[in-house]
Amino acid sequence: MALADYDAALGHSFGLEIDGIVIKQISEVRGLKMEHDVIEVRQHTADGRYVVRKLPGRSHGGELTLVRPLTADNGFEKWLQAARFGRIGEARRGGAVIVYDQEGSPLKRYRISGAWPRSLEIGALRAGDPGVLTETLIVTYEQMEVE
């Protein structure tokens, strides 16, 4: 069942799709942001009033933070190694962050381009800790569009 325009979306689950490969175990996504510069134009109107108008300027990329439970999947590590060893052409990719509804159907896609991994952090390792180990990937992107 699709959400009506007035229904709030629940953050049921998230996925990352990079080059056609979907990782659905993402538990947290931060940094989805579209932003651009503000250009101030100072001018006088026909009747002599001084006004400052604000116009949209150049758009900016950003950084995504993706958190998922630690698994045997080493896709994040391989992607990071390409950037770490200077193979930026191999590391720079396009993809999307996907928000899924309660039934597992894609609700919204945030398409990113020119993305490459900046860092990968493994959560604290504590003996006897009942919590789930996590890995946090920070991805730098050049542009984001909402589908």
Rank of each mutant, 00 (worst) to 15 (best):
A2C: 10
L3K: 08
A8K: 11
H12D: 08
S13F: 03
G15R: 02
G15A: 02
E17S: 06
G20I: 07
K24H: 13
K24Q: 14
V29P: 07
V29F: 06
R30K: 14
R30E: 02
G31Y: 00
G31H: 04
G31W: 03
M34G: 14
E35I: 06
E35H: 13
H36W: 15
H36S: 15
H36G: 15
D37L: 07
D37P: 03
D37V: 10
D37M: 11
D37Q: 14
V38C: 08
R42D: 14
Q43D: 08
H44F: 14
H44S: 14
H44I: 13
T45F: 13
T45M: 02
T45N: 09
A46L: 13
A46H: 14
A46K: 07
A46M: 13
D47I: 13
G48Y: 10
R49W: 11
R49G: 07
R49M: 09
V51R: 09
V51S: 03
V51Y: 12
R53M: 12
R53Y: 05
R53S: 15
R53G: 14
R53L: 15
K54V: 04
L55Q: 15
L55R: 15
P56R: 09
P56L: 00
R58P: 07
H60M: 03
G61L: 01
G62R: 04
E63V: 10
L64H: 00
L66R: 01
L66H: 01
P69L: 00
L70H: 08
T71P: 04
D73C: 04
D73F: 11
G75A: 03
E77G: 15
E77S: 07
E77W: 15
W79S: 00
Q81I: 15
A82G: 07
G86Y: 07
R87W: 06
R87S: 05
I88F: 15
G89S: 01
E90T: 09
A91V: 11
A91P: 05
R92I: 05
G95I: 08
G95K: 01
A96C: 12
I98G: 00
Y100F: 08
E103A: 12
E103C: 10
G104R: 02
S105L: 12
P106Q: 01
P106E: 05
R109M: 04
Y110L: 06
I112D: 08
S113Y: 07
G114M: 06
A115W: 02
A115I: 01
W116E: 05
W116Y: 06
P117K: 00
P117F: 05
R118W: 04
R118E: 15
R118M: 12
S119R: 06
S119N: 02
S119V: 05
L120A: 00
E121D: 12
E121I: 11
I122M: 12
G123A: 10
A127H: 04
G128C: 08
D129Y: 03
D129R: 01
P130R: 08
V132E: 03
V132C: 05
L133D: 08
T136I: 04
T136H: 02
L137R: 03
I138M: 09
E142N: 13
E142T: 09
E142I: 07
M144V: 09
V146P: 05
E147S: 11
